[in-house]
Design a protein around this nucleic acid. Structure first.
Lengths: 142, 142
DNA sequence: TAATACATTATATTTATTCTAAACTGTTGA
DNA sequence: TCAACAGTTTAGAATAAATATAATGTATTA
């Protein structure tokens, strides 16, 4: 709760009113020592477990989208039934373990700069994401 | 229709019965001179427009999934409300134009090999996909 | 502190996708 | 060739994520 002030500041600076729901969501997302991945469903569950306040599903969606627009969160490009979000907004990539449905960060230093030689007239590259799908490495493979 | 024979062959080889619905879907997907991207909804529309036969939505889903399992199609990793599929199953990457909701192929030669230095014990990399999001390049930007 | 613009909420709605169970069809082997 | 079977198609129902709605509540402002 000690961090509430800085979240109020953060929200205000980006033109979002610091409501108690948004501050609570900030605490869940940005108090954590490490960045992490989540789905809306998981986020709702965390809020339910650690908060005394009730936050409606619509608010969670709205807030997550607002935070994305402000660059506090990013969406991980994955074809999953639910969207995955990342509190780590620095430039990095992901392994996706399809067997365990688990995302693992790949630090930027662990991937050579992705250099795309082709350009599209009138467009510029906003972001580059690498998704490496991984599966069990059964030794006994041909 | 001249290609029907080869589709029958293709389906049979992969253990799928060559039904008239599947052959029709093959014609739509693989007769095209160029590879292309599509959503289920778009595929249904194409089939409706160029076929005399009626194919139910469930069959389209089943067939697309069967073709994916066989490696005839692949899914493009994108957080979109609908899944995007690609008839180009060779190793390549994509631009995604968020403003126009448009996918553009990036040929493998236009991207340096993505070399991931990190490994996960017991796992091996199955596929590596690069998604480059592009936006309008307004000259007048700081 | 009143007015107002923005937020939250419960609920309904939308939409993609999956499921179901009955009817149908391609294949196999006699 | 045909019966039997396993795989397939189908319409419609079910599911679930995400979005819209509209009434109520709250932060901001002057």
């Amino acid at each position: 709760m000690a961090y509430a002030e800085q979240y109020i500041e953060k929200l205000r600076k980006s033109g979002l009113r610091p409501t108690k729901q948004r501050i609570k969501i900030c605490e869940v997302l940005f108090d954590a020592e490490n960045t992490f991945h989540f789905t809306i469903k998981e986020l709702v569950k965390i809020i339910e477990n650690q908060a005394n306040i009730k936050v409606s599903l619509a608010t969670v969606y709205n807030t997550v989208h607002a935070f994305m627009r402000k660059g506090y969160l990013k969406e991980i490009p994955l074809n999953a039934s639910q969207s995955y979000y990342d509190t780590n907004v620095t430039h990095h990539h992901h392994f996706f373990d399809e067997e365990e449905n688990r995302l693992i960060d790949i630090h930027q230093d662990d991937v050579d700069e992705v250099n795309i030689k082709r350009t599209i007239p009138g467009k510029k590259i906003k972001s580059v994401e690498v998704i490496a799908k991984i599966v069990s490495d059964n030794q006994s493979q041909k």
